[in-house]
Design a protein around this nucleic acid. Sequence first.
DNA 1: CGTGTAAGGAATTCTGACACG
DNA 2: CGTGTAAGGAATTCTGACACG
Lengths: 107, 107
Amino acid sequence: MGHAEEAYKLKKVMTIGTVCEITGLSERKVRYYEERQLVSPARTGKGTRKYSFVDIEHLMEIANQIEEGTPTLEIRKDLDRRKRQKSPEKMKKDMIRGQINAHFKNL
Amino acid sequence: MGHAEEAYKLKKVMTIGTVCEITGLSERKVRYYEERQLVSPARTGKGTRKYSFVDIEHLMEIANQIEEGTPTLEIRKDLDRRKRQKSPEKMKKDMIRGQINAHFKNL
DNA sequence: CGTGTAAGGAATTCTGACACG
DNA sequence: CGTGTAAGGAATTCTGACACG
């Protein structure tokens, strides 16, 4: 399917403490960004958050945008747009729409 | 210097709990293999062990060898040999030794 | 809105030791 | 020798809340 070699980056293995140490963010911030749905850590059976290296990269981008004054809601919307662009379902819909448009143009 | 893209695999970020979940080994075993110097987790300021993905790969290899009946001391020696082979200092010494041997061969 | 902090509990990790084989 | 376990303490993480701006 995908890049098996890059699986490390996606695996949710770090606790919030490690994430904070690497990113320099406070636990409060990291948890708040989750509350705002900007990151989605996995959860262990007892509720401990687990983050991946990709999550860390995202968190640092998020932190930058916030420093620039971007509201979390804006960041959220941007993320949604990117996800929608990459979604296979959406791509299919877009293609169909494109075909229909092309069809009517030829009439 | 090296492969910057592979830095994830070397970064010590996981607690022993995560390592045990991924490898299926008990904490006791993982700590014992460290005592036998088969793995070298990093330590946080307060003493918590941190492992990398590479450490996990090594732990699984170690576990396999032990299942096969190999004593930890043997595994240890094997690791030492491999390390010595890859050591730049040792390689330099070997090269010099080789040159000297070649020198005397020509006399 | 974004973030700090004190609060109290639950889960994690650590070490040294005793046990078994 | 390799591993399980109970023991007690220290550090981590979690949630909900009050605070400030």
